[in-house]
């Protein structure tokens, strides 16, 4: 299968799932209701959307040290995404994802916002550093 995106670095196992493609960065502290998995920050471009079981494409990581514990917490609560793919991330997101065992990647080409839509079904391979498109959203 042809790679839709090439990634720069990654951690974790191969996962498939429904993509969420965001124009806005992400922080579990600033944006997420950590009891439901829904993005609740007023005015966030994904406000009202659940990240549970999704593959989340965020261009940036917002500040906040909380992700280190928060990802472990939402994984235990069963509301974690299947993977985080960041354009640019920060160490907290990586430290959190590694502790929780959630696949995480950083760096991409091309920008997923040009080739991927929310609802598309994708496979992320953090070892081979690729994202593959399995099927388009209907």
């Amino acid at each position: 299968m042809t790679a839709l995106l090439r990634l720069t670095r990654g951690f974790g196992s191969v996962v498939e799932g429904e993509a969420i493609v965001s124009d806005e960065g992400f922080s579990p502290r600033y944006d997420l209701d950590r009891w439901s998995g829904v993005i609740t920050k007023p005015g966030h471009r994904l406000e009202g959307l659940s990240i549970k079981d999704r593959i989340c494409f965020f261009p940036t990581a917002k500040g906040g040290i909380a992700a280190g514990w928060a990802f472990y917490d939402i994984q235990a609560k069963g509301i974690a995404p299947r993977a985080f793919c960041f354009g640019v991330t920060n160490p907290v997101m990586v430290q959190g994802a590694v502790l929780a065992g959630i696949p995480i990647t950083e760096g991409w080409a091309p920008d997923p916002r040009t080739v991927l839509r929310t609802g598309d079904w994708v496979r992320v391979d953090p070892g081979r550093l690729v994202v593959e498109l399995l099927r388009r959203a209907v």
């Binding site: 950590r34 280190g68 472990y72 917490d73 994984q75 609560k77």
Partner: peptide, 15 residues
């Protein structure tokens, strides 16, 4: 370090 029950949750406390 940051470590309080609001961000840890039950899983973090158990950790």
């Amino acid at each position: 370090m940051m470590g309080d029950i609001e961000v840890l949750g039950d899983a973090g406390l158990a950790f």
